[in-house]
């Protein structure tokens, strides 16, 4: 299972929507219910699933799903 597939499952679970199909350019504006509260749930679920820990700076500079995936991959290969 690739990072994007795993992440897609997380998105579907966090936002309770089985139709979500994530892509690199996707932002909070494209997902119904992606607000500051659900964003925290998303991040903590990602961190628990991939067993990684983002830094403050990484979290504050991620602008879209593509950057999130790149951040996860960077952590996994580090």
């Amino acid at each position: 299972m690739t990072t994007i597939d795993k992440l897609n499952d997380i998105f579907r679970m966090v936002f309770d929507d089985d139709t979500i199909q994530i892509h690199s350019g996707m932002t909070a504006n494209d997902v119904d219910g992606w607000d500051s509260l659900s964003h925290v749930n998303l991040i903590t679920t990602i961190e628990a699933t991939f067993n990684i820990r983002f830094t403050q700076k990484e979290l504050l500079t991620q602008r879209n799903v593509g950057e999130l995936i790149a951040g996860i991959d960077r952590k996994l290969t580090a």
């Binding site: 500051s36 925290v40 991040i43 903590t44 403050q56 979290l59 504050l60």
Partner: peptide, 12 residues
């Protein structure tokens, strides 16, 4: 808000 929220993200 965002830095504080992310710092305390484990507290839900």
């Amino acid at each position: 808000f965002k830095p504080l929220q992310m710092e305390w993200r484990d507290k839900g």
